[in-house]
Amino acid sequence: YKIYPYDSLIVTNSISVKLPKDVDRTRLERHLSPEEFQEVFGMSIEEFDRLALWKRNDLKKKALLF
């Protein structure tokens, strides 16, 4: 996945969300650098992957990456 800054990946309720063209809309968190991922989620990507799907989705919603 290509890395993008968190600010360019957050999704708000506005209709005209302009995400970069090559971003996987269903896995926005994968486009964060490991350092920024840790900062946003408070855990590593590996720890995040071990969580239940509902928990990952809940965290993504709170981080505006859903």
Rank of each mutant, 00 (worst) to 15 (best):
Y1T: 11
Y1W: 09
Y1Q: 09
Y1C: 10
K2E: 10
K2C: 07
K2T: 14
K2M: 09
K2N: 12
I3F: 07
I3Y: 09
I3V: 13
I3Q: 08
Y4F: 07
Y4G: 01
Y4R: 01
Y4T: 02
Y4L: 05
P5R: 05
P5M: 04
P5N: 05
P5L: 04
P5Q: 05
Y6V: 03
Y6T: 00
Y6H: 02
Y6W: 04
D7N: 15
D7P: 09
D7Y: 14
D7Q: 15
D7V: 15
S8G: 04
S8N: 08
S8Q: 15
S8M: 15
S8P: 00
L9I: 05
L9W: 01
L9D: 01
L9T: 00
L9G: 00
L9F: 02
I10W: 04
I10G: 02
I10A: 06
V11L: 13
V11N: 09
V11P: 06
V11Q: 14
T12H: 13
T12Y: 15
T12I: 13
T12G: 13
T12L: 14
T12S: 13
N13E: 11
N13I: 06
N13R: 09
S14F: 06
S14V: 11
S14W: 06
I15D: 15
I15A: 15
I15V: 14
I15N: 15
I15K: 12
I15S: 15
I15P: 14
S16L: 13
S16D: 15
S16N: 14
S16Q: 12
V17T: 14
V17R: 12
V17Y: 03
V17W: 03
K18Y: 07
K18W: 08
K18V: 14
K18P: 14
K18Q: 15
L19V: 07
L19S: 05
L19H: 07
L19W: 09
L19D: 05
L19I: 08
P20G: 06
P20K: 04
P20R: 04
P20I: 04
P20M: 05
K21W: 11
K21H: 14
K21M: 13
K21A: 15
K21I: 13
K21D: 15
D22Y: 05
D22H: 06
D22W: 06
D22T: 05
V23H: 02
V23Y: 02
V23F: 03
V23M: 04
V23I: 09
V23W: 02
V23R: 02
D24L: 05
D24P: 02
D24R: 05
D24Q: 05
R25D: 07
R25N: 07
R25M: 12
R25Y: 09
T26A: 13
T26G: 11
T26R: 11
T26W: 10
R27V: 07
R27L: 08
R27N: 14
R27E: 05
L28P: 02
L28M: 05
L28S: 02
L28C: 02
L28W: 03
L28Q: 01
L28D: 00
E29N: 01
E29D: 03
E29W: 02
E29F: 01
E29S: 01
R30Q: 05
R30M: 07
R30W: 03
H31Y: 09
H31L: 03
H31N: 03
H31Q: 01
H31M: 02
L32G: 00
L32H: 00
S33G: 07
S33V: 04
S33F: 03
S33Q: 04
P34D: 10
P34Y: 11
P34Q: 14
P34K: 15
P34F: 11
P34L: 11
P34W: 09
E35G: 09
E35R: 11
E35A: 11
E35V: 13
E35Q: 13
E35P: 09
E35S: 10
E35C: 08
E36M: 05
E36T: 07
E36K: 05
F37A: 02
F37R: 00
F37Y: 02
Q38L: 14
Q38E: 10
Q38C: 10
Q38G: 12
Q38W: 14
E39C: 12
E39Q: 14
E39R: 14
E39V: 14
V40C: 06
V40T: 06
V40G: 01
V40L: 06
V40K: 06
V40H: 09
V40F: 04
V40P: 00
V40S: 03
V40Y: 06
F41Y: 01
F41H: 00
F41A: 00
F41D: 00
F41P: 00
G42N: 13
G42M: 11
G42T: 08
G42L: 11
G42H: 13
G42I: 05
M43F: 05
M43I: 07
S44A: 13
S44P: 14
S44D: 14
S44I: 09
S44K: 13
S44Q: 11
I45P: 07
I45F: 10
I45C: 07
I45Q: 07
I45N: 07
I45Y: 07
I45W: 09
E46A: 13
E46C: 10
E46K: 13
E46D: 13
E46I: 14
E46N: 12
E47D: 11
E47V: 11
E47T: 10
E47L: 09
E47A: 12
F48M: 02
F48I: 00
F48R: 00
D49Y: 09
D49Q: 08
R50F: 08
R50T: 13
R50L: 14
R50M: 13
L51N: 04
L51H: 06
A52V: 09
A52I: 08
A52F: 07
A52E: 13
A52Y: 07
A52T: 13
L53P: 10
L53F: 10
L53S: 10
W54I: 08
W54E: 12
W54T: 11
W54V: 10
W54R: 10
K55C: 10
K55I: 13
K55T: 10
K55Q: 13
K55Y: 10
R56S: 04
R56V: 04
R56Y: 02
N57S: 07
N57H: 08
N57K: 08
N57D: 11
N57M: 11
D58N: 11
D58F: 13
D58C: 14
D58S: 12
D58Q: 13
L59G: 01
L59S: 03
L59C: 03
L59H: 04
K60T: 02
K60P: 00
K61E: 07
K61L: 08
K61N: 06
K61Y: 08
K61D: 05
K62H: 08
K62P: 02
K62Y: 06
K62L: 09
K62F: 06
K62C: 08
K62G: 09
A63T: 06
A63C: 05
A63Y: 08
A63E: 02
A63R: 06
A63Q: 04
L64V: 04
L64A: 08
L64R: 14
L64W: 09
L64F: 12
L65G: 01
L65N: 01
L65T: 00
L65M: 05
L65Y: 02
L65D: 01
L65E: 01
F66K: 04
F66R: 04
F66G: 06
F66N: 06
F66Y: 15
